[in-house]
């Protein structure tokens, strides 16, 4: 998978944080590690860490942390003050929205993207400057596109 649309610093260590552990997080975490990142993945439920690529967890390029993405304490365990990329990808739209706004305001994280699958919420948060992606809309477009051809 290509991640070329995200410009990362060329020098020095790169830390990224992913909130919510699921198939999407796992895939993004692996891609980021392949680009040289160390990726902290926060989820309150440690069973979800089964999604993560085992070898990368063992080599500590992916670091799973049991925690709440909206808690400053847990974010700091994930090195939030030294992170320039945060992706809020849990299945809970408004949780993602809160975490994204914490990252921007409290940690001035350079790139913050969150997943908001409710169409009206997505529209609203986009309007107030929260960088949000509606994964449901994007996948349904792909399905429709494929089905149409």
């Amino acid at each position: 998978m290509s991640m070329s649309q995200i410009t990362r610093p060329l020098m020095g260590p790169k830390n990224a944080i992913i909130i919510g552990c699921n198939i999407l997080s796992s895939s993004l975490a692996s891609s980021l590690v392949e680009q040289g990142d160390k990726v902290y993945v926060l989820d309150p439920d440690d069973h979800t860490f089964d999604w993560l690529e085992e070898a990368k967890v063992e080599s500590q390029r992916i670091v799973p942390i049991v925690g709440d993405g909206s808690s400053r304490k847990d974010l700091e365990r994930a090195n939030a003050s030294d992170t320039d990329l945060l992706l809020a990808l849990s299945e809970d739209d408004i949780h993602n929205a809160l975490v994204a706004q914490i990252a921007k305001h409290t940690y001035q994280t350079r790139i913050v993207v969150c997943r908001i699958d409710d169409r009206k919420l997505h529209e609203m948060y986009t309007a107030i400057g929260v960088h949000a992606i509606n994964t449901a809309d994007i996948s349904s477009e792909l399905f429709l596109g494929t089905a149409g051809n």
Partner: peptide
Amino acid sequence: RDDVNLAACQIAKQMYQVPRTISIVNDQDN
């Protein structure tokens, strides 16, 4: 839940121009 409280106030302001929003904050840090 602070995420629910924040979203409620932001939707009220942004989508419905509600003149006054009041919220409990549970986590002091917020």
